[in-house]
Simulated scan of single mutants.
Amino acid sequence: MSGHLDHRLLRGFVAVAEELHFTRAAVRLHVAQQALSRDVRRLERELGAELFVRTTRQVTLTPDGERLLPYARRVLQAQEELLAAFGQARPLLVDLNSPGLVTPRRVLHEARELAPRHELMARYESGLTGAAGELLAGRLDASFGRFAGLDPALRSGLDHQPVRLEPMAIVLPDDHRLAAWDAVPLAELAGESVYAGAGNPRTPEWTGLARLLFEGRGIDIAPPAPLAVGDEEFQRIMARTRNPVLAVVEFPALPSMVVRPLVDPVPLAPVSLVWRKGLTHPAFDALRRAAARLAAETGWLRRPRGAWLPAGDDVLMASHG
């Protein structure tokens, strides 16, 4: 035994011990059943003891499992008390990237419902790359975005939880030739120059995703534009350049512009909840549970038929399934 036990493993053990059912325990913890089973097996290996007798009909505690249960409950209770005592000193600071993005906002709202005694504060600073340095420095607690798009050196100090595979869209001037279409096939963008945040140091993960999507399709990435802060400035800059803008389907509608989903294939933007490794805060568990609950209830991680997702993103999202 290493001398250190991950509290997540103890929390999973207690849930299974109290439910005596892996599926019910997984629902209670808002995790996948397979992930919970892996955690229990890992705990058994670390302790060198079998904790459950599993059959096709029932789950029961072994004598070692019975012996562990009161210890595990006391450890988790002590952790909750410690975090509650120190967690009151500051809020959990969560970067939602942009006020118009629905997914991060819904997760934060749900987390506030789950942890009403704790303060979860939102900020809006576009871009996961821009947030990553602050996450690692401890100036920010969590953010949302495309984890695979981060530099590996940044990813090594961070962890993530898949939240959504969000269908992508194109934002067009309302008099653009494609504005009347209900959905825009990617092939129809051939010859267009599409804005995807090129030159914005906060969002290279988004520009990289666009580059992978446009490759071989005759679609160019528009050159850098002045960094627009706020809807009014964004609308003014886009009206001047008249470039289509790569976005997600829930991008907020703006005057003189329309949002159209992309199809054939349906490109997906992977969204993860991202935090620095080792983060502890009494409201952080609520944030993770909120993300897992919404992903399960809404089907955010289901892939539509004919979807497109880069292989690297596919691997990282699936590894946390």
Rank of each mutant, 00 (worst) to 15 (best):
G87C: 08
G87F: 02
Q88L: 12
Q88E: 13
Q88K: 13
A89R: 07
R90C: 01
R90Q: 04
P91K: 03
L92C: 11
L92Q: 05
L92I: 09
L92K: 07
L93M: 08
L93D: 00
L93F: 03
D95N: 15
N97K: 12
N97Y: 01
S98R: 11
S98Y: 10
S98M: 09
S98K: 08
S98D: 14
P99G: 11
P99K: 10
G100K: 11
G100N: 10
L101F: 14
L101S: 05
L101H: 12
T103M: 02
T103P: 02
T103R: 07
T103L: 07
P104R: 00
P104D: 01
R105P: 00
R106H: 06
R106D: 07
R106T: 03
R106P: 02
R106N: 06
L108H: 06
L108Y: 04
L108E: 10
H109T: 13
H109N: 13
H109C: 08
H109E: 15
E110R: 15
E110I: 00
E110H: 08
A111G: 11
R112S: 05
R112Y: 04
R112V: 05
R112A: 03
E113L: 15
E113V: 15
E113T: 14
E113N: 13
L114G: 06
A115L: 12
P116Y: 11
R117D: 15
H118F: 15
E119W: 11
E119Q: 14
E119I: 12
L120P: 07
L120C: 12
M121D: 01
M121F: 05
M121R: 14
M121S: 08
R123M: 07
R123G: 02
R123D: 00
E125H: 06
E125F: 03
S126R: 04
L128R: 01
T129P: 02
T129R: 07
T129C: 02
G130T: 02
G130S: 05
A132T: 09
A132N: 09
A132D: 06
A132F: 07
A132R: 06
G133I: 05
E134V: 05
L135K: 03
L135P: 05
L136T: 13
L136H: 14
L136R: 15
G138H: 09
G138Q: 06
G138P: 09
R139Y: 09
R139K: 14
R139C: 08
R139N: 12
L140D: 02
D141H: 13
A142W: 03
A142V: 11
A142T: 11
S143E: 00
S143K: 01
F144H: 05
F144W: 07
F144Y: 09
F144E: 02
G145A: 09
G145M: 05
R146G: 00
